[in-house]
Write a protein that binds this DNA or RNA. Structure first.
Lengths: 140, 140
DNA sequence: ATTTATGCAAAACTTTTGCATGGGA
DNA sequence: TCCCATGCAAAAGTTTTGCATAAAT
């Protein structure tokens, strides 16, 4: 975790305290490049600092989700969500429906679509998650 | 539920039996236009036919997900997923991050992006889920 | 007739809550 | 110092499993 992570600034600015639980969860998320299940977050946080309780981890994941830093998704089939990091409000990946591996990719022409939606639906859009489903080369 | 639902054809073709549990879950999903939590599916199925067990409902939701008929998402904040129907493999909606209402919308130019990805990543894409997050007019 | 799928009930997990206490600003 | 956030442990839910039985083909 870099001390000057933009997310840390974000927390500070929003008036949230920089607690061990929050900093540790953020560090774990960033170390995983933001593809990680809640169970894995729990395990890794526990390993880094056993003094941090489970409840705080869940509370932190909820907070980060509310702030738009991460987003829960159903990448694998278990009952635990996979959290992905939302850089600048968006995240793109292709998930192999067979092996569940994922492949991230850059923006397409989301900008035009976003603006069109804001006008049509009269909403203010802050971000999006675009998931493609398919079968990867290895599984084909 | 229409007897000749394309999904019913799909099940038959794939060799799955058309059981009460499956037909009832499908009917519930279609009645809700495919935005429904697992808890709601359980409740509505129970009301329609109390003889159908919870386990079968979950097994059916899993099966439908595997077949690409539906897709679990985190629309609301509870621990139950919201299932959306994947018509022709895709689904688009904007979710208000405040009130959690959703607004469906039609295809943008996903076709070009899809084809580009298939070439670049060497995957075979069967569908996608695109979720925009933002604040709706009422909540603004 | 053959299997596949089911219902039931219990087990396994995951997430949430209440409350006294500790730690950040 | 103040009060937000935490840890703990129990509670609340949700989903899964094993197995005998029913029902779809």
């Amino acid at each position: 975790m870099t001390a000057d992570s933009p997310h840390i600034q974000r927390l500070k600015q929003a008036g949230y305290r920089l607690t061990q639980a929050r900093l540790t969860v953020l560090a774990v998320l960033e170390a995983e490049h933001g593809h990680i299940t809640s169970a894995d977050v729990l395990e890794k946080v526990e390993r880094i600092n056993p003094a941090i309780g489970r409840a705080s981890v869940f509370r932190t994941l909820d907070l980060f989700t509310q702030l738009g830093i991460i987003r829960p998704t159903y990448v694998d089939t278990s009952l635990t969500p996979t959290y992905v990091m939302m850089h600048d409000g968006h995240h793109h990946h292709v998930i192999c429906t067979d092996c569940k591996r994922y492949f991230e990719f850059d923006d397409g022409d989301m900008e035009a679509l976003t603006q069109s939606l804001e006008k049509t639906l009269d909403v203010r859009i802050s971000g999006h998650l675009l998931e493609f489903y398919g079968v990867c080369a290895d599984c084909n």
